[in-house]
Design a protein around this nucleic acid. Sequence first.
DNA 1: CTGAAAGCGCTTACAG
DNA 2: CTGAAAGCGCTTACAG
Lengths: 355, 355
Amino acid sequence: MTTSVESVAERAGVSVSTVSRALRSVPGVSAATRKRVQDAADELGYSASPAASRLATGRTMTVGIVVPVLAKWFFGKVIGEATHTLRQAGFDVLLFELGTRAQRERFFSSAHLHGRTDGVIIMALQPSKAELESLTAQGQAVALLGAEAQGFGSVSVDNVSAGRAAVRHLLNLGHERIAFIGIRDEESSNLGGVPPLQRLMGYREALAEAGVPGDDMLEQFDENSVDGGAAAMSRLLVTEQVPTAVFVASDEMAFGVLKVLRKAGLDVPRDFSVLGFDNHELCDVVGLTTMDHEVAEQGQDVARILLDILQGGPPANLSRAVRLVVRETTAPPHVLRTTPTAPDSPHSAGHPGTP
Amino acid sequence: MTTSVESVAERAGVSVSTVSRALRSVPGVSAATRKRVQDAADELGYSASPAASRLATGRTMTVGIVVPVLAKWFFGKVIGEATHTLRQAGFDVLLFELGTRAQRERFFSSAHLHGRTDGVIIMALQPSKAELESLTAQGQAVALLGAEAQGFGSVSVDNVSAGRAAVRHLLNLGHERIAFIGIRDEESSNLGGVPPLQRLMGYREALAEAGVPGDDMLEQFDENSVDGGAAAMSRLLVTEQVPTAVFVASDEMAFGVLKVLRKAGLDVPRDFSVLGFDNHELCDVVGLTTMDHEVAEQGQDVARILLDILQGGPPANLSRAVRLVVRETTAPPHVLRTTPTAPDSPHSAGHPGTP
DNA sequence: CTGAAAGCGCTTACAG
DNA sequence: CTGAAAGCGCTTACAG
């Protein structure tokens, strides 16, 4: 296993310099000797010590991926796609989970990446100017996902217009009292980032556009999880004038919303409409209407953008499309129907979430 | 940024050897000089070049985590827990996704880990003897999750008895025609591993125990996903004598099962009972009855086991408990009820999956 | 407790 | 096209 360049050189009858050049396809080696070296290396099962080449070249051929959490569909998906692209380009990927503020601070203050990675992909976190500087000072190329920063590569979506489109769908169905459930960071966490806020902006714009007055009570925020969504919906249920529809900033939260509505005995979409965000793979199971934002593609994009920067290219800024995916959790509000009290359908067949 | 040991040594007025010792808390340095060195390092923002120390020590202080797929709740959860434990011990984690047979072969044949990691955690993959040897030949410590191998650390659960317990629950409810939906690898993929097979064994044992004759038609296999589960259930629906319940080897597949049943107009659990495996975080949303196997704990376990091996300890083999979590997708079979035709309840309230 | 020196295993100007 | 040599930035016996 510990076959070194020297053993290969010996076997191939050349110098170590030649071995090094031949094996890395550096120009300036005759085809004949290149083959001889390659063969010798193969026979010995040789592969260069990464530590040694890193020390000599200063390049690590690995990139870091930074996420707020791993155990979420969105991040699993995006990381999977990104690592695949990165690996094809010959890079290893180092994983960093920055779930708490403490972890985040330690990470950005410690120059931990220096000499460990050539570049880093930061997901769903809006790094501050200082944090970004710390990264570049460590010699890192950086690409952002779900955030933007002057001079840095990034991929994101237009969350404002996505939020607007979502709420318009609800307005078009005839809803007027439309709530918003968004993401608020916990004391100690740092998830969320800006997209959720932009979605809120879109929500407000659509309402204003339609002449529907806003209502603070209708905007609820919680942790980005099933439980967080459930908690937010529970609060909505006890407001003075309960809404007839809600736009939820993430599908996972929307799942929690569905759960609460079911437990409250409300029928979706007859009594209440729910619209999520992400197009989570399980949307189809519960019939959740949602906003798709090309999650897999975003993962590939951000990897490619970083690879470009690593090769000396300029930092690209991409924007992915968002589109409404109508399933079965949105419908016209009940009050608008002809017979509000008498059940207007068998009601138990074909309803979303009814297995 | 490129502050070296020398600059620290100079500033502290000591030799580089002393700096090296002081900074790594190696015994044999007076408290006074240790502090002086520490201060100098802090002032200079110094941190040792990983490549250089790796080359000098031969230790990388990083471990690899190998998974079949990233974009699944189970793996996200387990990786999250494992990386957390690893990071606390000062290790970085390198991620490897081996979704296809080709990727798997390349990985195990290329000595890619050599010099990159000190150890590796292999998840939900049953490595062959040769693959294991390749890893140890590369000097890797190895710990397995969801698999076992002579002489290697591992954490798993008793899937046979778990399968038995699951099916017994169904039998106790009065079901006799009970189907099994398991995981079969695609041509090109290598997911699954042994646990799914053991769950099948448990299913068969429980049936035999109860004197219920087996039926090949009742055992369906597909890809481990919502779509795979849906496809398998669709096949079950057209068997000659449709079963009244199914034990599904993974929750994600069970979600697909629920979807198909809903589309077929069947009510769960009135017309059909479904029992999953994993206790996926979304079980609660659709009310899926399932088998919990302490997923988060398994992630921590496997990391700790590897850390122990890395510190010279013996390879531990842990087994985690499995327990039935009854929710709302299992009930006595319809045919056993007193009034088979007339609905015996309001039937639309409180049903699983009805939001 | 501290320091001078060799060595870890590559890569890369510099000559030839 | 090929080789000898310096250097990348640490760690660790070996002396003292």
